[in-house]
């Protein structure tokens, strides 16, 4: 087989893969409505405000409920020392 044919077929397959990602995203988003239902119901019932992504400290667990003080209130002159703290900014209304 000619090299150009091998390349063009591979390129076609890769392009197909790219298109499949777009189609897959569309289809799975459509299907995800039911997947999100239980989460949305919990949020509504208990008034949840935050994602359980960073559970190490309370100001990172409930990021939207935090204020400027909460990261430093362990004791006077306390430093903020949780790893997540260096990666998440304070809530928007604080800035």
């Amino acid at each position: 087989m000619r090299k150009s044919n091998v390349f063009l077929v591979s390129l076609f397959l890769l392009l197909l893969g790219f298109v499949i990602t777009l189609v897959d995203a569309g289809v799975r988003q459509h299907q995800a409505a039911s997947k999100h239902e239980s989460g949305i119901a919990l949020v509504r019932q208990f008034g949840l405000t935050d994602l359980a992504l960073f559970t190490e400290a309370r100001y990172t667990r409930h990021l939207s409920q935090a204020d400027f003080h909460s990261a430093f209130q362990d004791h006077p002159m306390a430093f903020e020392h949780f790893p997540t703290g260096s990666l998440v900014p304070p809530p928007l209304r604080m800035r």
Binding site: S38, G39, L42, V43, L48, D50, L51, A52, T55, R61
Partner: peptide, 9 residues
Amino acid sequence: ESELVSADL
């Protein structure tokens, strides 16, 4: 399915 909001509840 709701773990993103409820893992530690």
